[in-house]
Amino acid sequence: MSDHVIGAQPGNAQLEVSGISVTFDGFRAINNLSFAIGPAELRAVIGPNGAGKTTFMDIVTGKTRPDEGRVLWGETHQNLLKMNEAQIARAGIGRKFQKPTVFEDQSVTDNLMMALKANRSPFSVLVWKAGAKDRARVEEIAAQVGLADQLPRKAGELSHGQKQWLEIGMLLAQEPRLLLVDEPAAGMTLAEREQTTALLVDLAKTRAVVVVEHDMEFVRRLNCKVTVLHEGSVLAEGTLDHVTADQRVIEVYLGR
């Protein structure tokens, strides 16, 4: 199919991670990992449980500090390791968690409004009022993720799959330049999975998207470059057909 997958050219990467390592109580969860993604690129990250996929996202989003290595962002090569979670998010990195995390006690509208791109300082949030444009945008996003008729409901009342969608909607509302999406398909029906792949492919036309997923069918539909992680470092990288033919990948991941 698509052997013409374009990787990030060195120098113009949106995100450039080089040589990072993390140790938890003597256990090396990330081991000299390097990774780069272009400004409008879709990338699937696969690997066995405990390979370090979520930890990798933790490092990029500032939740976990690596012991060594560099994480550079954007054209200006901003050093993300010097920034906290909120600053990194404001710089344009959005994240969807493995376990859907939405604000259960608040309505779908409130969840989306909170995520909507706007000034984040306490003073401007205090006097902020949803304008017609904001409400229209929230409705548009809700329609996009199939929650148009759920807006007034509390997020806690939604089904697992709907929460996944809501979180994706919140991600869209943030208008990030890099989306880190951790196992989006969990708890979704087949039809919803197809919808998700279509959405992710579409989003990647204008921004960088990293998707972690175990479901190989899902990854195949993404039709993009694949990075295989194993024991905290990159085992293989390339098209899906290329990596699935790799003997080591078959051993550690597919063969089981």
């Binding site: 989003t61 906290n84 979670e85 998010a89 968690f97 984040r120 300082s121 306490p122």
Partner: peptide
Amino acid sequence: ARVRFLGYSV
């Protein structure tokens, strides 16, 4: 933690 990832300085 979730609020932080939305870009708000908790």
